[in-house]
Design a protein around this nucleic acid. Structure first.
Lengths: 131, 131
DNA sequence: CCGTATCCTAAAAGATACTG
DNA sequence: CAGTATCTTTTAGGATACGG
């Protein structure tokens, strides 16, 4: 105890961000493999821990917890614990996180477009007999 | 030789992307610590290797090369080599990468806003005598 | 000038078991 | 249900030296 560790993903934060450009700052806050993906699940309202989890195939509980905690700390999600048995916790976007919605929508669109573009280019040299 | 390695940052690519959502795909293409930062330097036109390098404090040649190569492969930057001595190489955004410009601009704006917001919240308990 | 090649460290992420 | 706690693997990224 006392040895803080395992607290932050995107540890770029500490050094590089204090005076760095806002883009780098933003990337550190919402970058990484999971964050945007988690946030976008909350786009339509509150979700419970297990609901988020089910919507993100492949994420472990540990990772989800880690990312959620970090985003809570960064003011991106609001965590609400209900004093019930069995326990119930839900997560929702904060105002500042809501402002990211258009960004990830565009990014999603871009991803789709890029993927299609790339796929149309990699027409294999040897013709695929499937078609 | 033959053992491919050290080829990809964001190696999430391989497995998770084939059928994954477009957002994850996009994150893999332009995520990571450096890519957006590099791309945005090219926003106003071609730049040489050394120029990019100078504009990104803290990046090593190795990292810059790695990221540029990967983005070239992914169709995000176009690399042009001039047969001169001393050698000259420049990089520019591809069309599909140009479409990211509004996205990183918004992200930059968001970063600025978030940073200010957070800073205004962390008003220290003990008043700072500097002001 | 524009990179590679090696070697290395530190994070991120995964597997698994356990708990209030 | 909603997490922690460990442990291990994998990957990103850095330092440095050298090369066409």
């Amino acid at each position: 105890m006392g040895t803080k560790k395992e607290n932050s993903t995107n540890s770029i934060n500490a050094q590089y961000l204090t005076q760095e450009c806002d883009l780098t700052y933003a990337v550190c806050k919402i970058g990484g493999r999971w964050k945007l993906l988690i946030l976008c699940k909350l786009e339509n309202g509150k979700l419970r821990f297990s609901e988020i989890r089910r919507r993100i195939p492949g994420i472990t509980e540990r990772m989800l917890t880690l990312q959620l905690r970090e985003m809570e700390k960064d003011g991106l999600v609001k965590r609400t614990v209900y004093a019930e048995v069995p326990p119930r916790v839900d997560y929702e976007l904060t105002e500042i996180a809501e402002e990211l919605v258009p960004i990830w929508k565009q990014l999603d669109q871009w991803g789709k477009k890029h993927r299609e573009l790339i796929q149309s280019q990699i027409v294999p040299v040897e013709c695929n007999h499937e078609n």
